[in-house]
Design a protein around this nucleic acid. Structure first.
Lengths: 199, 199
DNA sequence: GATTAGTGGTACTGACTGTTACCGTGATTT
DNA sequence: AAATCACGGTAACAGTCAGTACCACTAATC
């Protein structure tokens, strides 16, 4: 149940008691232990399920656009939306916190989530590179850094609970700005400055 | 003592017992409670001290370079070095995990750390904008996203314990690549493609 | 040398928690 | 209708832990 996962996400693994989960979800200890075996098993199952559910939304899309800009904006829009969702914020918090105690969980989370998303982006970039649209260079590193742009300081503030998640309009603005920088940079080349583009 | 902070960073707040801290640091409960009052007080003091210590290294530098590229590379190099340090990785983990329980700590961490670093970067960008070197646009957003590039997927893997921290050489490569993308983008402009630059 | 202050260590208490066992109830099956 | 099963709720057990109190020792002060 997703409600059980919320308790772990809010309070953390160690601070969450089985009783507090039952308070929120109903059911009995008997069946929790029958199905999951232990608190750790319950935690792993809940995190894995949530991760599957949330992260599968990452690997659907991104390539629907016609040209590279549209592809990347679509990709950034979707990735940012997922990163801003309450589910993923909680997941990120708890997986980071318990990465040492549950290394397998951390690895599974990364591979199914950010890793797979970056791999998809690498494909997009490799194709663009073959078409000659982007410069030669390390596509993996560029993809990783682009993903980082989407987990920017604003996202960090959301994860730290310092500000509410971005609205769709804000996500759109952030995604287009990120793609713009990623593709063209912010520098005004002195040799080719046709007009100051302010959009 | 920095050793006490390590215990919190490794195990998390709830999973760390006062006894386990004393095991590592020596001393007695008596004096811990005399000085810090409670476990939460100890935690806040340790995290605050560590944050001050580590994050002050963020706001020193960055503007030593002569031109914008050098400034940004220096900034990125230093920020990435700090972000990759074991101290900051542990700090990040525990602050994220306990952001709900200790919101003041999360706010203080952000403002003294990523917030201040981004503010410094905004200054650099605003100056460059006045000089006409970079395009008109939201410098705050650009700075936030640039900081995100430095907390890229590789950094996430480090935080999740999936790979060791970057070496200085790798940091250098990552920093220069990030600045290159940030300033000029990865696109090869079809109208001005003198030669494919592969470096 | 005696006294006092401060420290490390240990024991204790009360509360909490993971885990197991037990009891009562309602539904399903034969 | 009887019996079996599945489930929720409660209790019990064992271990841990925050926080307090106490004891022994050392060092400094008078």
């Amino acid at each position: 149940m997703t409600a059980a996962a919320e308790v772990f996400f809010e309070q953390g693994y160690a601070a969450t008691s089985i009783d507090s989960i039952i308070e929120r979800t109903g059911g009995s200890k008997r069946n929790i232990y029958k199905e999951f075996g232990s608190k750790a098993g319950l935690f792993i199952a809940l995190v894995s399920d949530t991760a599957d559910e949330v992260l599968d939304a990452l690997s659907d899309d991104g390539s629907r656009g016609r040209d590279l800009t549209e592809q990347l904006v679509g990709y950034a829009r979707q990735l940012t939306t997922v990163y801003m969702s309450a589910r993923l914020v909680g997941l990120l918090r708890v997986v980071m916190a318990e990465a040492i105690r549950f290394p397998d969980l951390a690895a599974a989370f990364y591979e199914r989530g950010p890793g797979r998303a970056a791999a998809r982006l690498v494909e997009i970039l490799e194709e663009a590179k073959e078409r000659g649209e982007i410069a030669q260079g390390d596509c993996q590193m560029a993809a990783d850094q682009f993903c980082g742009m989407l987990r920017d300081n604003v996202h960090l503030q959301v994860v730290l609970g310092l500000r509410p998640a971005l609205t769709t309009a804000e996500i759109e603005a952030s995604a287009t700005a990120a793609v713009r920088i990623f593709l063209d940079g912010i520098r005004v080349d002195a040799s080719a400055r046709p007009e100051p583009n302010d959009q």
